[in-house]
């Protein structure tokens, strides 16, 4: 390998620019990134990218939307790197490498009714799949989105949740918050409880779940109670991945790496892994 060639080096990022930053909530921003030519590479819904803000560091983020000319990453402010990302402005250069992982089984889900269950920032990866379905609306059956956050201020993608998505044919959007608020006349419930109350029909339906660990655990139980089989339930896992290419070992669970074999797993598969997820 010639010394200056980074083209074959999977650990050196390529450079993209931030072309838009949308404040989703007080602690979530959606970053639109692109090269001068458009998207840096093709990304499938649910796939992951390593995003670098030099000299702070690098982290794995799931794609929130793969638009024609840019990629979106909705990122919550929770630590050193994400704090720094929340301080950047349009025009900032970022490093990017990827895409990594399997992504959602968008093809296999065609012809099915889709039930998306999200909590908090967990809507970010689901959104890449939800918008994919709307772009190809006829290929999917009924679409239901159940989304919960701690409070109204924590709800992200509000415009889409309240206006754009409900306007889609055969689509129902259910939004809930954890505790009552004065100016909220919508549902107040935890996501798993609301799910059991709505009792969606498992017939020809695939449930896609993403949210905080506790929500995932309880929602999976609720789905089981509602009659969903393990192969009808898919979720996307995370780990504090350092390389994205199956070498750093950080996202190892059983004989799987979340970065290579995931991040999307169906529940039937997960049941074969050690009970660590």
């Amino acid at each position: 390998m010639p010394p200056d060639c980074t083209c074959q080096n999977p650990l050196v990022p390529s450079i993209v620019k931030v072309v838009e930053i949308v404040d989703e909530t007080y602690d979530i921003k959606n970053f639109y990134v692109a090269t001068d030519q458009g998207i840096p590479f093709e990304v499938l819904p649910g796939q992951l990218c390593m995003v670098s803000l030099l000299p702070v560091g690098e982290g794995m983020f799931s794609v929130t939307w793969q638009a024609e000319d840019h990629l979106q990453f909705a990122i919550r402010r929770v630590g050193l790197l994400t704090d720094a990302l929340h301080e950047i402005e349009i025009g900032q250069e970022l490093g990017i490498r990827g895409p990594y992982g399997n992504g959602f089984p968008v093809r296999q889900c065609e012809g099915k009714n889709m039930l998306f269950i999200g909590g908090g920032i967990g809507l970010a990866p689901l959104r890449s799949f939800i918008k994919h379905c709307f772009r190809r609306r006829k290929r999917y059956g009924q679409i239901q989105v159940l989304y919960g956050a701690r409070s109204v201020a924590d709800l992200c993608f509000k415009q889409e949740l309240s206006v754009e998505w409900p306007a889609q044919p055969e689509t129902r959007i259910f939004t809930t918050i954890d505790r009552p608020e004065a100016d909220w006349d919508g549902k107040v419930a935890f996501v798993p409880a609301y799910l059991e109350e709505l009792a969606p029909d498992p017939e020809n339906t695939v449930a896609v779940v993403c949210g905080p660990p506790i929500m995932i655990t309880l929602a999976l139980k609720s789905l089981q109670k509602l009659g969903f089989k393990d192969d009808q339930v898919i979720t996307t896992l995370e780990g504090r991945m350092k390389c994205g290419i199956g070498k750093c070992g950080r996202c190892n669970i059983g004989s799987e790496y979340i970065c290579l074999d995931g991040p999307v797993f169906d529940l039937a598969h997960l049941r074969h892994l050690p009970p660590e997820w």
Partner: peptide, 9 residues
């Protein structure tokens, strides 16, 4: 072979 990857200035 597990590793950490980080930036150092």
């Amino acid at each position: 072979y597990c590793a950490d990857i980080f930036d150092e200035t």
